[in-house]
Design a protein around this nucleic acid. Sequence first.
DNA 1: TCTGGGGTCCTAGGACCC
DNA 2: TCTGGGGTCCTAGGACCC
Length: 411
Amino acid sequence: MDPARAIIHLDMDAFYASVEQLDHPAYRGRPVVVGADPRDGKGRGVVAACSYEARPFGIRSAMPISRAYRLCPKAIYVRPRMARYAEMSDRIFAILRDYTDLVEPLSIDEAFLDVTASQRLFGPADAIGRTLKARIRSELGLVASIGLAPNKFLAKVASDLGKPDGFVVVAPGKEREFLDPLPIFRLWGVGPKTEARLKRLGLQTIGQIARMPVETLEAMLGGAGRDLWELANGMDDREVVPEQDAKSIGAETTFERDTEDREEIRRTILELSDRVGRRLRREGYLAGGVTLKFRDHLFRTLTRAAILDHPTDVGDDLFREAWKLLQRVSLAGNRVRLLGVTATRLLAAAEPPGGQMSLFRPTADPRRRLARAVDAIQERFGSDAIARASLVEASPARKGRKSGVKDSHSR
DNA sequence: TCTGGGGTCCTAGGACCC
DNA sequence: TCTGGGGTCCTAGGACCC
């Protein structure tokens, strides 16, 4: 057996809402809801994050914003400021990397750290964990919850249980004792569907799953059954992996009102394709495939995918393919709720991303050169400085629509 | 209650090849 | 005329996570 590893899971408490309270002293001590515009309870969209003061009202993240509004109309409702959260995230991750290179980001505000080897330099793992919490609080004014355990799964569950401002340690040998009484939804990979299925079989706690013959679970759930059984028994040998290549890059948007307007649909697919192209170029990828996502007024979701003849990072190419894919979706009688464009089969672009050289290479595709020139102008002067004529001359209906596809991301 | 936007992973079924 | 078995690749859908 390996000597016990020391894995930390760090998760920021109410991250977006906490940053808003940090930046707006008037919000402190008050219920803050970050998410879609509630529009007097008629808005679409969900709660991205809420402060702990909002929780006694029953507000939770991922809840429809209209419901949150009914529960607490007096809360402070703000739109997400992703650029600001990303900036704070960078500072958090910089602190984490002071203690180990083995930092695996799970999201903007959550990470695993393997501090097994760090202990020689920085002392025991729980001291490292306490230092991380203290530095994030004193240097950034934000609160993190931490779980420390011999593996990723246990560390994750530990940090969740301690929230907010938690610090929970699962010592080697105490895995089963810690997990046994917990409800099954705490297992990674058990969402609402699997939870309902397991409950129908009379399974309520992780301990009950741990004590079942693994073959029974395998017969019920296939390969996932063994994974669940191992997690329930506190077994998880996944490594902390610092860098992982993206497998897809996408953008999607939900219309304020379901639409059947061909022109609006076309324009939206073009905007989404441009956004994806820009990200591909910025992050140095070429797309080998495109997927179009389509959701109708009954919330039915369809996807159609294609492989490109030539990998690309140009929005026009993505658009042309996505538009072809749309023709494969039967629109008859369907109003469109959501459209999405995703670049798949990503390859690392041979040229350095954003490199000036590419502007002068005689063999470079002129549309890629144009796209990069537009990137440079937008980088320098902002995304409103230059746009496609076909998008600028968009129908008057779009005027005053503050949550346009482009705006919502660049703000 | 009426469901965002960003992703990852898994599976079933069909096409195709040997 | 009826037909194996293995393998790979691809698509679409869905569960799940934050």
